[in-house]
Design a protein around this nucleic acid. Structure first.
Lengths: 228, 228
DNA sequence: TAGATTGTTAATCGATTAACAATC
DNA sequence: TAGATTGTTAATCGATTAACAATC
C-alpha cells in the first residue's frame, strides 16, 4: 500500500488498450460540450453522452491522473487537454493517404482530420490517370515517390485505401519507408513487423458481425413466440 | 462434469463476441485458400494467415462445433460453410445505405458486399441534388421514402454515411422503420434502443489510437537511447 | 455541515494461451 | 503403428462493474 513506488516513473502511461479506444469518444463528447460553453461535467453526464457506464468512465480517466473535483465533476477544458496529451494529439502528425479512389477521396475530405492534429501531407496513387489530379487542395503523387514523400514530410502514419490486390505490396513499401502506424481499409489481412502498429477498418466484417446478431435476434423472437 | 445438460439446447450458440469478430477474418482467408484450390488447412496455417495465435483459432472454431479432423486439419469447404452458417450469411440480407456522398458512393461500390449475402436494396439521401442520380446501378431515393423502402425490401440492416449533424435524426427514423442493425460512419455517438445493434467506424478514433501508440514508441526509443 | 461526486477497491466476468490427452 | 493435429482443460491475464470511503 504505502510501499515506495518502483518501476514506471511519472509518465506512467499503462493505459489499457480498451481505455485508449474510448478516450477518443470522450474527446468527441467533450468538444460538443465545449461548443455549448459547458464548463463542468460529471462522470455520470459524460458517461451517458458517450454511451458507457459511469464507473468505467471514471476508471478510464483515473489512468490519466486525478483531474476531477469531488462533489463537482470534471472541468471540460482540463479534461480535454489531458486526454489530448495522453493520446499524443498535442504534437502535430503528418499522414500519407495511399489510394485515391472513391474511398480515398472521401477520407481525404474528412473534416475531423485537421481538427485533431492530423494533417494529410501527401496523397499517393499508382494509377497514372489519377496522378497529378488535385484532390481537396492536394496533388496526387506517383506511388514511386512514396519513400521520398514519407521522408520529406516526416510521416509516421499511413492510411491505406488501395485495392486488396495491391495492399500488401504498398504496406511493405510504407514500412520500408519508415512508417510505423498503418490504418488499413483494404479487405485483406496484412502482415507487418512487430514495431509497426496496424489497425483495420473492415466493412465486410462489420456487416457479418451485425448479421450474426440479426440471426440471434431472430432466434430469440421465434423462441419467445414458441414459449409464449 | 457429467451432470445432465440444462438450459441452452443444440443450437447453443454462446459464441463470444471476440470470436464473432474474428470469424469474419477466417472466412476471408478461407476464401483465398478455396480460390487456390486448397482442400485442407491446419489450425496453425490458418492462424498464421489470419494473424492470430493457433490456440485461439482452435478455441474460436470449437464454439461452432467439431468440424476439424485430428491429425489432418480442417476441410476448407466445410469450415467455410460452418462459419457462414454461424454468422447468418446463408440467408440473404437487404441493406439500406443512407447518405450518398463520397463515402456513401465508395461504400455502395464495395465489391465485398454482394459476395457475402448482403445486397444494397436501396440508396437514400436527403439532398434533392442527389435524389434520382443512379449510383452503381441503383437510383438514389428521397429520405422521405425511407420507411416505405425498409418495409418494401424487408430491410433490417442500415449503413449510415450522412453528416454528423443529421445522423441521430436519420438513426431515429431507421429504428422507427424497423431496422435492427446499424453500421454508423458518422462521427457522432448515436443513441439506440436496446433491441438495436449499433456498430461504428470512426476514422478519427482510429487515428487517435495510432497516435497514442506512436507516442509510446517515441518514448521507448528515447528511453532506449538514454539507458543505452 | 450536508450533499454530491470522485477515485479506488475488490469481486466478477470474459478472453487468451500453453499444454496435452484424444484421436485421426 | 508413428506422426500429426484437433478439441479441451486450466491457468492467467485483462476488462468491467458495484460499492463506498475520501473529499470537494
Amino acid at each position: 500500500m504505502t510501499e515506495p513506488r518502483v518501476g514506471r516513473a511519472s509518465g506512467d502511461s499503462r493505459v489499457p488498450e480498451a481505455t485508449v479506444a474510448r478516450l477518443a469518444t470522450y474527446l468527441r463528447v467533450l468538444s460538443i460540450l465545449a461548443e455549448r460553453a459547458v464548463a463542468t461535467v460529471s462522470s455520470e453526464e459524460l458517461a451517458v453522452a458517450a454511451g458507457v457506464n459511469s464507473a468505467k468512465l471514471r476508471k478510464d480517466l483515473s489512468y490519466l491522473g486525478s483531474y476531477g473535483i469531488r462533489g463537482v465533476g470534471y472541468d471540460v477544458t482540463t479534461l480535454t487537454e489531458q486526454i489530448s496529451r495522453t493520446l499524443g494529439l498535442t504534437v502535430h502528425r503528418n499522414v500519407v493517404l495511399v489510394g485515391v479512389g472513391h474511398l480515398g477521396e472521401a477520407l481525404a475530405g474528412y473534416a475531423g482530420f485537421a481538427s485533431r492534429g492530423f494533417r494529410i501531407a501527401a496523397l499517393v496513387d499508382a494509377d497514372p490517370q489519377r496522378v497529378g489530379r488535385v484532390v481537396h487542395g492536394l496533388p496526387v503523387r506517383d506511388a514511386a515517390e512514396l519513400a521520398e514523400l514519407v521522408a520529406e514530410h516526416e510521416i509516421t502514419i499511413a492510411v491505406l485505401a488501395v485495392p486488396g490486390s495491391a495492399a500488401q505490396d504498398v504496406c511493405d513499401q510504407l514500412v520500408g519507408a519508415g512508417v510505423t502506424s498503418i490504418l488499413n481499409f483494404a479487405p485483406v489481412v496484412l502482415a507487418v513487423p512487430p514495431h509497426v502498429d496496424l489497425r483495420k477498418v473492415d466493412l465486410a466484417a462489420e456487416l457479418q458481425i451485425l448479421s450474426f446478431h440479426e440471426t440471434r435476434k431472430a432466434i430469440e423472437r421465434s423462441t419467445r413466440v414458441a414459449q409464449g
